[in-house]
Design a binder for these strands. Structure first.
Lengths: 386, 386
DNA sequence: GCCCTACTGTAAGGTTCCTTTACAGTTACC
DNA sequence: GGTAACTGTAAAGGAACCTTACAGTAGGGC
């Protein structure tokens, strides 16, 4: 350990606790801040003066009502820093810009086919969003990016993303060089899991999983309140999961033709719907079934059974408290599908989680990306090192 | 956050860091302690005086060599506390007594059929071990117990243990009443995983799993350096894992006839050995194969293939860095089996951990139980509350 | 054999950070 | 109009750590 003055540590900790508190609970008075952080009124006042001098907090109003003078309310200065978050999909790139308080200022979009390479695509989308937000790219403290594929947790770089041919190892370095600031790349499903945890169905739950059922299949694993990425960033790649009734997967081919992926996913469900004599695509049939169409009932049961086959294995390994169904299929299936999946899991093993549909509105991947971007931006802006 | 004097926290932290350091690195001088904990020589001296007054550390010798006066070496007082650890098996109960430094003083054994109930069995075995260690039961700060079955992480009580009919919910309460001190009950496979992590193959590894292949089948999941128990304590009950090629499990029957358990385990291997025309039991055949018997080769290959079918699913979900094969089969299979399992996993999915045999000698369950017992005893003895 | 260097261990004084106490000033309620 | 409850600041104090200083001890070089 460093021989550094250890007493600074406690002040830094208190400063950061106060900032986090103002971010989560909104503006507070000196006295209330002291109570919440565990400091005396006097020390809380000194703390706020200090943060005010650094330009991080300001008086944002006065508290009305109650006896005595109207206490000043202190809040975090929104312009202390900005972040940009992106969701990279095969056919669309979405960006969102927010200030340090987490307030979303503007969004931007781009068709990736319009850009020659990832760096150009990111730069164009971010430029679009920052312009609408009325800030410059230079004011961004951090860029966070959600993509399909596997990210190496050691380097933070992409290992491979099947659906995005241009996004391969080295992209991180290119982006860092181009933007000259922290860049975070994270798997899209993992980000959806983080979004669910910070503002959705798994909020406050220690151990949970989020199953992403869409074109691809994925799983976000939350253990003890933290996202588990795995040694090589491959945790949750359940498209490859061997499931009884599917053909045994082989090698590291695309999971499209392997295992769990062959049973569920949007494509597999289209096929399944036809097999049940239904018209329309799989997701449409899920919606019909949820809305009460009796013809689509057996189809929904079979879908629940298939999902349970894979999820039961996951529950046997992890025993999560909660299992969220997300992605287009999870959202379409809603409470009805979730209840059936839970029942089917119960028939397959001893560990039965509560199964629920996602509770995030909007794009959960973008939301999660914003989350991790804000986390690192705050670490940077609020730290006393700079 | 309590309004309590926050400044005590830093002193307590330093005291504890010093104690942990003396436990892991052995006796140290004042000056060296200061360097390692990050304190000045003066403060380190005050710290040691304080801990000496509390009877926790003492001078255990002097450092020879080097200039100047021979510095006094300070170490933790072994008699500051004792713990007992137990491993409950269907046919044998083993106990081990250690002092607060982790030095094992004595062991004891008992045939559980000699005792009328769990409390009696534990009391008799512990009495045996403490007597041999030259201490009394009253000197024990904590008892830790490893059993098969599921433990509820909320209450710490047993939910059920198929192999131990007398060990059921309520045992924890009975033991607490009888011994009037902290009692910890933990799943045996989880304890083996902890032992492996603190002194075995997964030492220093953040994400790992330990597969226990014996009469029963189990998995210890270590995520980010910490044991993952699951919401209901059911994480790692992989006997129920659905695996292609095994019959689909059903309900919460004993896993004996279900899924992964039906493919591997000592009994399944006996059957498998006969099917391959081998004489002797399954474990014996594993040993023969490892020692180079060509007739047993195909048997070992099939065993590795079966293990990989289940482990591949686990790797797809968790992507561990290391996978340990433990239990009687894992130990017998050694490096040879581990290498084949790793190769087989590589053919089944994208996440391939390093597969190794257990590196713990002796009873890993007892070792793990001692570990958690020492952890809580130290928390208690070293805390400043009492 | 002597001196220098490097180390131990303690004493004295200083810094940082937080706390309590005190008080002047402000507002709501009775 | 008085009292109670609150805000915000000033002054004094305590807890924990730090540096500096110094007396004393052991090894190494000449």
């Amino acid at each position: 350990m460093s021989r550094a003055p250890k007493t600074h540590l406690i002040r830094d900790t208190n400063d950061r606790a106060a900032l986090d508190l103002m971010l989560s609970d909104g503006p507070v008075t000196k006295t209330r801040l002291g109570e919440l952080v565990g400091l005396s009124k006097v020390t809380a006042g000194q703390l706020l003066t200090r943060l005010g001098d650094r330009g991080l907090v300001q008086v944002v109003g006065t508290q009305q009502g109650g006896r005595g003078p109207n206490a000043a309310l202190y809040g975090v200065v929104p312009s202390a820093g900005y972040v940009a978050a992106l969701h990279i999909g095969p056919d669309q790139i979405t960006a969102s810009v927010a200030d340090i308080t987490g307030t979303e200022l503007a969004t931007g979009e781009l068709d990736p086919h319009e850009a020659s390479d990832p760096v150009e695509a990111v730069r164009a989308t971010v430029a679009n969003a920052t312009e609408r937000a009325g800030i410059t790219i230079e004011q961004l403290r951090c860029l966070s990016i959600g993509t399909p594929g596997m990210i190496d947790p050691r380097t933070g770089d992409i290992r491979f993303a099947n659906d995005l041919p241009d996004w391969r190892a080295g992209v991180l370095e290119d982006l860092r060089r181009s933007f000259q600031r922290p860049i975070l790349i994270e798997n899209d499903v993992n980000l959806a899991g983080l979004a669910e945890q910070s503002a959705g169905a798994t909020h406050g739950v220690k151990d949970s999983v989020l199953a992403w059922i869409d074109r691809g299949l994925g799983l976000a694993v939350i253990v003890d309140g933290r996202l588990h990425r795995g040694a090589g960033g491959g945790a949750g790649e359940i498209g490859y999961l061997a499931v009884p009734g599917a053909s045994t997967p082989h090698g590291t081919d695309s999971p499209q033709h392997a295992a769990f992926q062959s049973l569920v996913s949007v494509e597999a469900m289209d096929t399944l719907a036809r097999a049940f004599g239904l018209s329309g695509d799989g997701v449409g049939c899920v919606r019909s079934a949820v809305e009460g169409d009796p013809d689509a009932e057996p189809f929904l049961d079979e879908l629940a059974r298939r999902l349970a086959l894979g999820l039961a294995g996951i529950c046997v390994v992890l025993d999560p408290e909660l299992c969220v169904l997300a992605g287009e299929v999870g959202r379409a299936g809603g409470e009805v599908l979730a209840a059936r999946v839970q029942k089917a899991i119960a028939s397959l093993g001893p560990n039965v989680p509560t199964v629920v549909p996602t509770a995030i509105s909007g794009d959960p991947v973008l939301r999660g990306a914003l989350q991790i971007g804000l986390d690192t931006a705050r670490d940077e802006v609020f730290s006393n090192q700079g």
